[in-house]
Nucleic acid binder design. Structure first.
Length: 569
RNA sequence: CGGGACGUAGCGCAGCCUGGUUAGCGCACUUGACUGGGGGUCAAGGGGUCGGAAGUUCAAAUCUUCUCGUCCCGACCA
């Protein structure tokens, strides 16, 4: 490709509306342009990268028996009504009507459609298992799209679905798929972790996320370097402390005045005690009304764990106006004693003695609170979000590291949720009808490319992992209008093309500085710089983008070495 | 959905508070010349419904109201 013919509108300055580095660099490198909030046009350089990701995905998913299909982006409401998700999915589902006034949606995911295909065509256990996948544009009307292509509303996704006779067989495919995912992200040159994850609204029995470790990630990942345990903090288990016996005699319950001291920090410094000796009470609302969660003052309560412990349908932090309807509730002075709603307690609280809680009246707290003596507990369990340096729940001496992660892949075992609702059944060996057991496996294609930039960039621009680079080599003649430089540049270009190496020839009339800046920005792994002085000495300069290392090599022999140099990167 | 901010040339911004001829700057763009190893120099140019609508005023980029768009924080989220 000649650079003069490539549509790569590079920018010197970062766009004002970009926040994270991958977004800035993708726009600056001329890979993408925004069309509307969360909706982007992918320009040639961007598409080349996405195609690389797609191809890697195809190869690995084919390898584990996936068959590629292409399902409609527009889906009829009937299927979603059948699966009960038409009402459940909410505003994120983009809905509209056709000219006959029939309702449709733009597919945010494709369980319904693929299940519909399978139920119509597959009858017997002999035809199972099957794995289908597609790479398709999805639309989710996110409340807040951000970070460019990383969290767009419209986005490219690989989604795969598997159908099985039973859970055990589903697990076999699930594990194969997990391995394929590891291969994919390794080939993409990413540092990632496979972590336990919440299955969210897709539903199902268990699931793993593939998280690329990067500060700009929106998830928190907890992992133990010693034993390898890794989980999204949404459900990362906390290790219960052993029950302790009080060193002195139990204190008596005592009410103290704490005017204006509402936060844990304020109360801790006012009473001159550590935050660990305070227990905070957090109000939530579920389908049955208000409930309270208790965690230690220095801990954060975890909504998902709370929901799981209660076993309720929905759970969210109590709204202010709901709290306002209860005159006995005083925010800042909430406490479990005398509270007339179900109380759920973190197990770290249950081993405490002589702690402080709100007194359920303005400007007062209790000290000397004892769990056994003073609290009426609905249930105790793991309620808090783990933090760095917390003990690992899985091994003896390990500790949690908590870092940010970008969720690039997610795999689920769905069970029979969709097959039951939509009657996707097979006949087993006994001639009996059973719902198929399903698995589902997604990868964000654009997000994977963006995550690769988050992990591989420097102050000059993108440093593409070799397998994702839009071009492997860029040839930069210092002055292409100089005949000798042009002849050599063209010759190298021709030869590399013959060798099947994706090469960009910067034939533009720009000055060298500009061409180098663009090459750095775009992130092509190898630069071949051809200048008059070096060439007169029979040499060309080879520069490695990643390390900025630059070496002179004899021309023309060096051209034949390029494949090896690339492999060594 | 709650809170905050922004919208002026392709991009990045100033001007607005305190209304007053032809609305500026940098980059980019066009033409020419000189240049040619990290965005060079000089000269000459082109490009604007100041997001939109209504209002206040002798006069609106500037003040008011409404509206649309975009971004940030939060809530939410395969």
């Amino acid at each position: 490709m000649h650079f003069s013919k490539l549509f790569a509108p590079t920018l010197k300055e970062s766009p004002a509306d970009a926040e994270v580095i991958s977004h800035k660099l993708m726009v600056r490198a001329g890979m993408i342009r925004q069309v509307a909030s969360g909706i982007y046009s992918i320009l040639p350089l961007g598409l080349r990268v996405l195609r690389k990701v797609e191809q890697i995905i195809r190869e690995e998913i084919n390898q584990v028996g996936g068959q590629e299909v292409f399902l409609p982006s527009i889906q009829p409401a009937e299927l979603w009504i059948e699966s009960k998700r038409w009402d459940f999915y909410g505003k994120e589902l983009l809905r509209f009507k056709d000219r006959h006034n029939r309702e449709f949606c733009y597919g945010p995911t494709h369980e319904e459609v693929i299940t519909d295909v399978v139920r119509k065509e597959i009858r017997s256990y002999r035809q199972l298992p099957v794995v289908f996948y597609q790479i398709q544009t999805k639309f989710r009307d996110e409340v807040r799209p951000r970070f460019g292509i990383m969290r767009g509303r419209e986005f490219m996704m690989k989604d795969a679905y598997s159908f099985h006779v039973d859970e055990e067989d589903t697990q076999r495919t699930y594990h194969k798929m997990a391995k394929a995912y590891s291969n994919i992200f390794n080939r993409c040159g990413l540092k990632f972790k496979q972590v336990q994850a919440d299955s969210g609204t897709i539903g199902g029995s268990f699931s793993h996320e593939f998280a690329v470790l990067a500060d700009s990630g929106e998830d928190n990942i907890g992992f133990c370097e010693l034993c390898g345990y890794a989980s999204n903090v949404e459900l990362a288990k906390s290790k219960p402390s052993p029950a302790s016996t009080p060193q002195t005699q139990q204190q008596d319950l005592k009410e103290v005045e704490t005017p204006g001291k509402k936060t844990v920090e304020e109360v801790a410094s006012f009473l001159n005690i550590p935050a660990q000796h305070i227990v905070k009470t957090i109000l939530f609302e579920n389908e049955n009304g208000l409930v309270a969660g208790l965690v230690r003052g220095d801990h954060e309560i975890n909504l998902i764990k709370m929901k799981n412990l209660i076993g309720c349908e929905s759970l969210h932090p109590a709204e202010e106006d709901v709290i306002a309807k209860h005159p006995e509730l005083h925010c800042g002075y909430l406490g479990p004693i005398g509270l007339k709603i179900p109380i759920y307690v973190d197990h770290e609280v249950s081993v405490l003695h002589d702690f402080v809680t709100g007194a359920n009246k303005p400007s007062a707290h209790f000290t000397g609170v004892q769990v056994e003596r003073d609290l009426k507990i609905e249930k105790t369990g793991d309620l808090r979000t783990v933090m760095t340096d917390d003990p690992c729940p899985n091994c003896e001496t390990g500790k949690y590291q908590v870092t940010r992660g970008i969720e690039v892949g997610h795999i689920f075992i769905l069970g029979t949720k969709y097959s039951s609702a939509m009657k996707a059944v097979y006949i087993d060996q006994q001639g009996k009808e059973n719902p198929m057991v399903m698995g589902c496996y997604g990868i964000g294609v654009g997000r994977t490319a963006a995550a690769a930039i988050e992990q591989n960039h420097d102050e000059r621009g993108i440093v593409w992992p070799r397998n994702l680079a839009p071009f492997q080599v860029v040839i930069i003649p210092v002055n292409y209008s100089n005949d000798e430089l042009k002849v050599v540049s063209d010759a190298i270009y021709e030869r590399l093309q013959e060798m099947g190496i994706e090469t960009l020839l910067d034939d533009r009339s720009d000055r060298l500085g500009g061409k180098l800046k663009d090459a750095d920005l775009i992130g092509v792994p190898l630069q071949i710089i051809i200048g008059p002085k070096n060439l007169a000495a029979g040499q060309v300069e080879i520069k490695i983008r990643k390390t900025n290392e630059s070496n002179l090599h004899p021309y023309p022999q060096v051209v034949e070495d390029i494949p090896d140099i690339l492999k060594s990167l």
